[in-house]
């Protein structure tokens, strides 16, 4: 069989009205490279045109997404670029359809935020989840400061953000993190798809109306988060220690 070309993101719409978006950039482990972000946002635009009842997002078996890539972070230190990955959280939170994230593999930093922006989150007991921004010296972004406490509870969110440790899904389950399910890795996709199908059984207009209402709090919080996070980024990305930590940590 011919080796398949590395396409960062694939999507399709099934007969039930469930759109599936698969993040499959094996080459970069679903890191937010420029081409990944363009493909991800492009796929979202195309999916929106199809008016699916629900969107199911999945990743690679071992990695859901690792968030920002090294080049982007170093460019941020240099003040060269605007933060493009912010658009991911904004677009997801503003999506007209409910989003179910099947997070089989690790999700850290911005990768975790994809889940936080979803309406339904299914995690794997064996995989790790973390808001590791501070390990690299800079403060959390993409809305994490508001969305993480809202989703996981304020104390665990603080520990995750301030300490920068990654947590096994099993540990999050023991601590009572109230996501939809934390199940063995092999069951994550099936469980998430079952929830997506339950949603897809309803009339699309009703689903869209309810989704709009349910997401209003998240949309508000994301606006608040951006204001504070942008300010903190301006300070923390300019610190020499941040640049040093980024260069060291991403040592391959």
């Amino acid at each position: 069989m011919k080796a398949e070309e590395n396409v960062p993101v694939r999507w399709h719409l099934d007969d039930n009205g469930v759109a599936e978006l698969m993040m499959c950039d094996r080459e970069h482990n679903n890191l937010f490279t420029d081409s990944f972000i363009d493909a991800f946002l492009g796929a979202l635009s195309e999916i929106e045109k199809e008016r699916p009842i629900c969107l199911l997002i999945s990743g690679l078996p071992d990695v859901f997404s690792g968030g920002a890539d090294k080049e982007t972070l170093l460019d941020l230190c240099d003040g060269k670029i605007v933060v493009k990955d912010l658009e991911i959280s904004e677009r997801l939170v503003a999506a007209p359809f409910p989003i179910v994230s099947a997070m089989q593999g690790h999700a850290v930093g911005g990768g975790l935020v994809i889940g936080l922006c979803s309406d339904v989150m299914v995690l794997a007991r064996e995989s790790r989840y973390g808001a590791v921004f501070m390990n690299l010296g800079f403060t959390p972004g993409m809305g994490t400061t508001e969305l993480l406490p809202m989703a996981f509870g304020p104390f665990i969110a603080s520990e995750m953000m301030l300490g920068g440790r990654t947590f096994r899904g099993g540990e999050l389950a023991e601590r009572g993190v109230p996501v939809n399910a934390i199940v063995p890795k092999a069951d994550v996709y099936r469980r998430a798809r079952r929830i997506a199908l339950q949603i897809a059984d309803k009339p699309v207009d009703s689903v869209y109306l309810l989704k709009y209402t349910l997401s209003s709090e998240k949309r508000k919080r994301l606006i608040d988060a951006r204001r504070n996070e942008d300010l903190m980024h301006r300070i923390t990305f300019a610190m020499p220690e941040t640049r040093r930590r980024i260069s060291e940590q991403y040592n391959e």
Binding site: D62, H106, V108, S127, R128, T166, R168
Partner: peptide, 8 residues
């Protein structure tokens, strides 16, 4: 242990 387990 997976890669992130080892890092922890």
């Amino acid at each position: 242990a997976n890669s992130l387990d080892m890092i922890e």
